[in-house]
C-alpha cells in the first residue's frame, strides 16, 4: 500500500465523518420539539421575524432540498450567522480556536512529559514506591471529575495562596491551572499504557539480545525499548483526543477560558443554535484531522507500516 492511497483512504474517511456529523446535526435540529424558526428567532420574537428567519434558512422548502442546501453551505464553510451576536459563526469559532488549541496542546504536553517517563520508570523499577505512585495516579486520574479538580486547584492556588489567577486568559500564568487540570485525565492512560508496554517490551527477545551484544543499558532502553513501546503509547495518545475535547469543554467553563468549548456552552444557554452547530462541526473536523495526523505518525515510527508488512 503506497503512501498516496493511505492518505486518499483517510481523506475519504474524513469526508464520511464530516458528512455524518452534518447529517446528525441536521436531523437533531429538525427533531427539536416545536418550530425551529421560532427557536432560532427566540421565543418572544414577533411573527414577522419568525417568518423572515423561516425564509432565510429555507425552512419552507421540502426536507431533502433543505438537507442539500445545508450540506452545500457546510462544504463552503458557510456556517451561518450567530443569533446572539449577528456575526458569522465561522469568524467567531476561528477567533476562539487558538485558545482551545493552546490549552489542549499545553495539557497534552504536560501529560506526555510526565506520563511517559513516569510509566517507563515505574516499569523499570517494578514494585518500587514510584511504581505504586504511578499506579495510584493512574487510578485516580481516570476517576477524577475534571471540573472538581479544577475548582479544587482554584481553591488552593487562587483563593488560599493567591499566587495564580482563578480564570480568564489575561495573564501568561492563566494557562497553568487549566492546563494542569486538563492534563490529569490524559496523563492517566498514557502512564498506564507506557508502564504496561514497557514491561512487555522488556521481556522481548530482542531486548535480551540487545543487552547480550554488549550495548549499554542506556542505549538498550532509549533506543530499543522506548521506540518499540512508543507504538502502543502513540495509539493511546491518539485516543486521548476525545478525552481532551471533553476535558476542554469542561475545563474552559471552570476557568472562564475563552475557547471553543466555552463558546459552545455559552451558546447553548443563549439558544444560539447556529453557533452551537458550527462550533461542533469545526471541532469534529479538527478531531478527524488530528486522528489522521496520529495515524501518519505510526508510519514514521514503524517501518513495517511504512514499507508494507510481510517479507
Amino acid at each position: 500500500m503506497g503512501a498516496i492511497s493511505f492518505f486518499t483512504k483517510r481523506l475519504i474517511g474524513i469526508a464520511i465523518v464530516v458528512l455524518s456529523v452534518s447529517i446528525f446535526m441536521f436531523i437533531l435540529l429538525r427533531s427539536i420539539p416545536g418550530d425551529p424558526a421560532r427557536l432560532l428567532a427566540g421565543f418572544d420574537a414577533p411573527p414577522e421575524v419568525v417568518q423572515q428567519i423561516r425564509e432565510r434558512y429555507g425552512l419552507n422548502d421540502p426536507l431533502p432540498l433543505q438537507l442539500a442546501k445545508y450540506l452545500e453551505n457546510l462544504l463552503t464553510f458557510n456556517l451561518g450567522t450567530s443569533v446572539r451576536t449577528d456575526t458569522p459563526v465561522l469568524n467567531e469559532v476561528m477567533s476562539r480556536l487558538p485558545y482551545t488549541l493552546y490549552l489542549s496542546l499545553a495539557s497534552l504536553a504536560i501529560a506526555i512529559a510526565v506520563g511517559i517517563p513516569l510509566g517507563a520508570y515505574a516499569a523499570l523499577k517494578k514494585d518500587s514506591i514510584m511504581d505504586y505512585v504511578a499506579t495510584g495516579l493512574t487510578s485516580i486520574g481516570t476517576a477524577m471529575p475534571t471540573f472538581w479538580l479544577g475548582l479544587m486547584l482554584i481553591l488552593f492556588f487562587a483563593v488560599q495562596l493567591k499566587c495564580l489567577p482563578a480564570g480568564g486568559a489575561e495573564s501568561a500564568s492563566s494557562i497553568i491551572l487549566p492546563a494542569l487540570t486538563l492534563s490529569l485525565p490524559v496523563m492517566a492512560p498514557i502512564t498506564k499504557t507506557t508502564r504496561f508496554t514497557f514491561l512487555e517490551v522488556l521481556r522481548e527477545d530482542f531486548v535480551k539480545l540487545a543487552k547480550a551484544k554488549g550495548l549499554r543499558k542506556k542505549t538498550v532502553i532509549f533506543k530499543h525499548v522506548l521506540r518499540n513501546a512508543m507504538i502502543p503509547v502513540l495509539t493511546v495518545v491518539g485516543l486521548q483526543m476525545g478525552n481532551l475535547m471533553r476535558g476542554a469543554v469542561i475545563t474552559e467553563t471552570v476557568f472562564a477560558w475563552p475557547g471553543v468549548g466555552r463558546l459552545v456552552v455559552d451558546s447553548i444557554f443563549a439558544r444560539d443554535y447556529p453557533m452551537v452547530q458550527g462550533a461542533i462541526f469545526i471541532l469534529a473536523l479538527i478531531y478527524a484531522f488530528i486522528n489522521l495526523a496520529v495515524d501518519s505518525l505510526y508510519a514514521a515510527v514503524d517501518p513495517r507500516i511504512r514499507l508494507g508488512g510481510g517479507a
Binding site: E204, D205, F206, K208, L209, A210, A212, K213, G214, H224, R227, N228, V301, D302, P303, R304
Partner: peptide
Amino acid sequence: SVILQNPSSSLDPL
C-alpha cells in the same frame, strides 16, 4: 555473545 532460538523475535523490528 548469544544466539537465541527464535530469529523473528530476537531482532528489533524497528
